[in-house]
């Protein structure tokens, strides 16, 4: 097999050499199962969604006439679409900042602890293991419950944590931070443990203070992890749905409805699948844009580090 490939390689054009290679050599056989799933559950729905977004199809699959860009035109003139898109962006900003900073702070704390490290590691990470339904019910029914909830009981307040349009988003963010900070914490902790000990040793010999070590060794060494954490966090936050759907249902007065829930509401309870697809595509474009910017920034940074 190798000889037939090797012999013409010196004389014949590259294209011909490639064509002669049996497809197993590309590893196609190994990625085929993945490819089938990928096409069936990602590529195909993506194309189907695009087609649906250009029609007025309903949940029964009928009424599927082609309407061109009418759904997109309706979406751009729909104040609720803008409101829910804004809610998603707001949630992303409000949640990403504390999730990254607290993840780092908790990791630093645990990393520098001497005793009961496992307990702290477990405490910060455990909530992340809970399913969203458990988290939502726990916070809605026990912690934020108006009247006799834990929070009102402890603080002696009478607030509607999830019922007040000015507070609902903050309450959801608080829950989300508690729930998911463990993941960022874990990434940071792993990164901290991989910083070579001799750097700190050398710094100590040079008389560096703890603060100097943090600023000049730890944080720069964590830069790549921070980039990764921020990307993952942004993408996760932009896709927020479950905890909001389960805790506030998007209310009160649309103050927490993220765009994914808006698409869900239109499509699955309003039965307008065509319009819902158009709204989903608007979010899709936003996420692709954010990812591209992120990639570019990361690449630049890596190049400058070189």
């Amino acid at each position: 097999m190798t000889t037939t490939v090797a012999a013409p390689a010196t004389t014949a054009p590259v294209a011909k050499a490639k064509a002669a290679r049996p497809w197993t050599q590309h590893g196609m056989l190994f990625i085929a199962p993945f490819l089938v799933v990928y096409v069936a559950f990602l590529v195909w729905p993506l194309l189907l969604g695009l087609q649906m977004s250009l029609s007025s199809v309903n949940i029964a699959g009928s009424n599927d006439g082609f309407v061109g860009f009418a759904n997109y035109a309706e979406a751009f003139g729909d104040p609720r679409m803008w409101r829910s898109l804004w809610n998603t962006v707001l949630f992303t900003v409000l949640s990403t900042v504390p999730l990254v900073i607290l993840g780092l702070v908790f990791a630093l704390l645990v990393h520098n602890l001497r005793f009961m490290r496992w307990l702290w590691r477990l405490s910060f990470f455990a909530p992340f293991l809970l399913p969203s339904a458990v988290v939502a019910v726990l916070w809605r029914q026990m912690i934020y419950q108006p009247g006799f909830g834990l929070l009102n009981g402890t603080l002696g307040t009478d607030s509607l944590w999830l019922g007040d349009p000015n507070m609902a988003m903050w309450s959801v963010v608080m829950t989300t931070v508690w729930w998911t900070v463990g993941f960022n914490f874990l990434l940071y902790l792993a990164a901290l443990q991989s910083i070579p000990e001799q750097l700190y040793e050398a710094a100590s010999i040079d008389g560096a203070s703890a603060w100097d070590k943090l600023r000049s060794i730890t944080l720069p060494m964590l830069r790549r992890t921070t980039g990764l954490v921020v990307v993952l966090q942004l993408l996760a936050s932009l896709k927020v749905f479950d905890q909001i759907y389960l805790m506030t249902g998007g209310g009160p007065e649309d103050s927490t409805r993220p765009i994914i829930e808006y698409a869900y509401d239109i499509g699955f309870t309003g039965y307008r699948v065509g319009y819902a697809s158009a709204v989903s595509y608007i979010l899709f474009i936003l996420i692709v844009a954010v990812s591209l910017v992120q990639l570019r920034l990361l690449r630049k940074r890596e190049e400058s580090l070189r």
Binding site: S56, I59, A60, S62, N63, G270, Y271, R272, V273
Partner: peptide, 8 residues
Amino acid sequence: TPNPFPEE
């Protein structure tokens, strides 16, 4: 909002 099931 248009009725998703207009009369046929």
